[in-house]
Design a protein around this nucleic acid. Structure first.
Length: 427
RNA sequence: GUGAGUAUAGCUCAAUGGUUAGAGUACUGGUCUGUGGAACCAGGGGUUGCCGGUUCAAGUCCGGUUACUCACCCCA
């Protein structure tokens, strides 16, 4: 017999958790659509050359091949997508002629990454992306829309989250103004990004070891520790890029003022992917910052230059749904108990009541109430216990059908006898 | 990729190198054939991850291997 075992990094939820996951996915989808984004689903598989077009390392990718592939056949052509942005770029380039721009799409799919799994970090997980792609110019309007959408989703889900916004131009301009070279900037950025995690002193030491002068180190940390727009005025040594970034950041900040402290301007955040060129986002849970970002994204100047000779700027953001759920299930106090969508269990006390039980269930379903009939005549305690275990809220008994129905509400233990139509109305 | 740890019943874990590997929990049945959560009783459930070695004797010691977990790196 094969031993069943979990594959590390490939999460599988229990029924109650999956139900919750669907709720979350539905909420995300609903809000995305409320803002006018259209759904896109792309193939799980892309050509390796497409996936690597934006400089992704091969070791992150899971290749795809037939187990019984003929000897000599090339087996390194296809791989599972590791994010949803690269497939989007390919798709937009391919369908450029028939899409209307700005193209607003959402995409909720699993992605795969060949990483070592850890708390909140998976090899297979859901991402829920939205992006807007424009031709030539993309108004800043959309940079401000991203956090608005995300904030609304978190609000509907009852999750306390903090969306942080920064701008790559601010970072690049600032560091250029300090006289750092093109080679130094990415390295310095990566270290500065650890400020919150390892503390000011350690970052200063590391930067010093990289050959950055003491004054410059202080200046780097000065930007990273800025907490608001006003902390930035007077900085930047007159650098033009910095000034433009600041302008953009101000526009976004002003547009999102109504969200209060759910969105904060945070010049310390960096984001890993280097194709971001303007606004960048990340999103943390204040109650568990160690989990890392549960949602991030940014603006890029040119989505699909590898695939098409058109300038297609975009801005997008992606929710790490699996990471978010893993947190909510373990530390976030979400302990879903409902393990079935059934709202009413129709009891089947004896075989000769089967017709009545089936009819009750049919009428419930017609009224859009998920209902199931117990699968065999059995003692009623067993049937009620079944409903209890699955947290099915109601059990109906068919004895008095069709005039009335006996309904037991499990949470309270109360039982009433009334016509089904009355029960449906009161619901 | 680097470092450390763990592996025994479906799950959580016991068992000094020594009889037939136990407990809690979960499951099934009963006490209780018109109604859940409790209690009590009974029952089923194991190639101790895998391969090899040491020993009269290995769940236990040693080597290897695989998987999993945690931290780092990085990211959603």
């Amino acid at each position: 017999m094969l031993k069943p075992s979990a594959i590390s990094g490939f999460p599988e939820w229990l029924p109650a958790q999956r139900l919750k996951e669907l709720e979350v996915l539905d909420t995300i989808r609903r809000v995305y659509e409320l803002y006018g984004y259209a759904s896109l689903e792309t193939a799980a598989v892309e050509k390796v050359e497409v996936l690597q077009a934006k400089g992704v390392e091969g070791k992150e990718l899971y290749g795809l091949e037939r187990l019984a592939a003929e000897a000599g056949a090339s087996t390194r052509e296809l791989a599972l997508h590791f994010d949803l942005t690269v497939p989007l770029a390919r798709y937009v380039a391919q369908n450029y002629g028939v899409l209307s721009f700005p193209y607003k799409r959402y995409q909720i799919q699993k992605v795969w990454r060949g990483e070592r799994p850890a708390q909140g970090r998976f090899r297979e997980f859901y991402q829920a992306d939205i992006d807007v792609i424009a031709e030539d110019d993309l108004p800043l309007h959309f940079d401000a829309e991203m956090p608005a959408v995300i904030a609304e989703i978190f609000e509907r889900l009852g999750i306390n989250a903090r969306i942080r916004v920064n701008n790559r131009k601010v970072l690049m301009g600032y560091y250029q103004g300090l006289g750092l070279t093109e080679e130094q900037i990415p390295v310095v950025l990566r270290e500065v990004d650890k400020l919150e995690k390892i503390g000011r002193d350690k970052v200063a030491t590391i930067l010093g070891d990289l050959g950055v002068g003491a004054d410059t180190v202080n200046a780097c940390l000065g930007l990273a520790e800025a907490k608001s727009l006003s902390d930035l005025t007077g900085l930047g040594s007159g650098n033009e890029l910095f000034a433009r970034g600041l302008e953009e950041l101000r526009f976004v900040s002003d547009s999102l003022a109504y969200l209060g402290d759910r969105v904060e301007i945070c010049p310390g955040i960096v984001r890993g992917l280097d194709y971001y060129t303007g606004t960048i986002y990340e999103c943390i849970l204040p109650e568990h910052p160690a989990l890392g970002s549960v949602c991030s994204g940014g603006r890029y100047e040119d989505l699909a230059s590898e695939f098409i000779k058109r300038k297609l700027p975009g801005v997008g953001i992606s929710i790490g749904v699996s990471r978010l759920l893993s947190y909510l299930f373990t530390k976030g106090g979400w302990n879903p108990t409902r393990s079935s969508p059934t709202e009413v269990l129709v009891a089947l006390p004896q075989e000769d009541l089967r017709g009545k039980a089936n009819e009750i269930a049919r009428q419930l379903r017609q009224a859009d109430v998920p209902a199931e009939v117990f699968h065999e005549p059995a003692k009623l305690d067993k049937q009620v216990r079944y409903a209890d275990r699955k947290q099915i809220p109601y059990v109906m008994f068919p004895f008095t059908w069709p005039e009335t129905i006996e309904v037991k509400e499990l949470a309270s233990g109360n039982q009433v006898t009334q016509p089904l139509s009355e029960w449906l109305e009161a619901r």
